[in-house]
Design a protein around this nucleic acid. Structure first.
Lengths: 219, 219
DNA sequence: CTAAATTTTTAGGCTAATCTAAAATTATAT
DNA sequence: ATATAATTTTAGATTAGCCTAAAAATTTAG
């Protein structure tokens, strides 16, 4: 059974919400993410339940069925592969990719996505450091943590960002920080939570506003 | 004012029909191309006229306004650029590109198409030999003719095909004919309209069924 | 030049996805 | 534990795009 663009967006929203809050996903949470009214969401939930893409109990929230999860993950796979393509091949910056990838993820062509995957050398992460599910829906979990929670004395690699506004990206460019950049947490100032970071033998102090927007991974 | 996917498909259909038959485009002609009923077409024509994309006189057919023409040509530009991308970068064959390009042409992102254009080296023709409109909507007309109408003794370059079934493409592959292949019309058999063609010093007889499906251009 | 055939439009309905307003259910707070 | 608040669902409308059937306009044929 094929899915409409709108159904796909609902499945994706449900998937993302359930990633954070575990358990059942509420109507309101979906409404907020989709930017629609709760009543519209209820209508769609009935439809998705009829198609066996979700398990829906009135007033109790929803969970994805295995088919629903696979459908959602496939959309996410396409979204992230397109993001890599846009950044690596078409000179898009991190903050420009989202809206376009949001459109491209709904293109239906298995060959297209298989070829894009090969063309990009089978990437495993998107430009934000998020893992790209494989074609079977398996997701390799990265052990990424937010830089503000990193340990002093430890060395990390930058794997992504949370904020992708152009202001923040400019800051990163200025200090030559990108995906793969190695950095060592030299000191933590308990008063304001700022961190002293060593990048390529240069020292840099980052405020909490910065460190809560960078994802890193232990080397 | 923005256009929906459906509106874009109507504009494209009207454009293509008017390219062949000049003058006003009839409701039935559009219905046939879109594969919809005439009554549905009438509804849409009213809508497009309200948006000043076409000039519509009841019972008299339609013509594109300048805005309408530019919108149609922009979609065609995107369609053809995507076709080049699919064939040149993603190993699609001539007959596999159409359905996917039909989806990709509706992606809305000026940067995306500008970057794809640059990435491909600003191509001027798609894999079928059709011209790619520039970003201002100008179309460089190729002087392509159908091979069956070529002159004996003249040398031509292959610029495209009409039939893009995989059977026909296999035939072309077998005889090493592609876009840019030079060929000389050595003789024409008036009885069955078959042509004797010289390709890379090899001689080949093509039946009318073949020659009516290959586009060529005088060198 | 009129009658028949064809084309096009109108009228009225359908489905998908949305909305508002009101009703039903569940959660919370004293 | 029950009233109030919050959440969720239902009911009824709306819009885009499509349909069928019937009416209107145009074209074609004799």
């Amino acid at each position: 059974m094929s899915t409409t663009l709108t159904e796909e967006n609902y499945l994706k929203a449900i998937y993302h919400i359930s990633q954070q809050s575990k358990s059942e996903v509420s109507t309101n949470a979906i409404a907020e993410r989709i930017d629609a009214k709760a009543s519209s969401v209820t209508d769609m939930l009935k439809k998705l339940a009829d198609k066996s893409l979700i398990t829906y109990v009135k007033y109790k929230g929803v969970t994805l069925t295995e088919t629903g999860r696979l459908t959602a993950v496939d959309i996410i796979r396409k979204h992230r592969l397109w993001e890599v393509f846009l950044v690596e091949k078409l000179n898009f910056s991190w903050d420009e990719v989202h809206d376009v990838a949001e459109q491209l993820e709904h293109i239906k062509s298995p060959k297209l996505i298989a070829e894009i995957d090969a063309f990009l050398g089978f990437p495993t992460q998107d430009p934000h450091g998020d893992p790209i599910p494989d074609k079977f829906g398996n997701i390799q979990q990265t052990n990424k943590i937010i830089l503000s929670k990193a340990d002093v004395g430890q060395v990390y690699t930058c794997v992504g960002v949370l904020d992708s506004s152009s202001e923040f990206l400019k800051y990163l460019d200025k200090h030559q920080i990108g995906i793969g950049t190695e950095l060592k947490v030299v000191d933590k100032e308990e008063f304001d939570q700022s961190l002293t970071i060593e990048i390529a033998s240069n020292s840099l102090v980052m405020s909490k506003a910065i460190t809560t927007n960078i994802y890193v991974k232990k080397i």
